[in-house]
């Protein structure tokens, strides 16, 4: 679980619907080191890696949004593939 501050400062978030009924929200880590400039693409790539490797075969749907209220949808995953 990330701290409140990091959740607020993340550029993207990922909502995952698992096969066992759980729904979880993950926030991206956008920096290569503590004082680096945040890189949104890096965060998206890391979330994708988490879906494809850490939680491989455990989720049905995952959607990546911008981390704002009414943020746009950036990527959508369905049963292990990007759509």
């Amino acid at each position: 679980m990330l701290s409140e501050k990091m959740q607020r400062e993340a550029l993207t978030k990922c909502i995952v619907w698992f096969y066992d009924g759980n729904v979880r929200t993950f926030y991206s880590l956008d920096k290569t080191h503590k004082r680096a400039k945040p890189n949104q693409a890096l965060g998206i790539r890391r979330l994708e890696k988490m879906l494809m490797e850490t939680f491989k075969g455990q989720w049905e749907t995952a959607i990546i949004y911008e981390n704002k209220s009414y943020g746009n949808e950036l990527a959508r995953f369905k049963r292990g593939a990007r759509v």
């Binding site: 693409a41 998206i44 990546i64 990527a75 990007r82 759509v83």
Partner: peptide, 10 residues
């Protein structure tokens, strides 16, 4: 398939 921030980075 790439999202808009990724395309911008590339």
């Amino acid at each position: 398939i790439l999202s808009e921030p990724e395309v911008r980075e590339i």
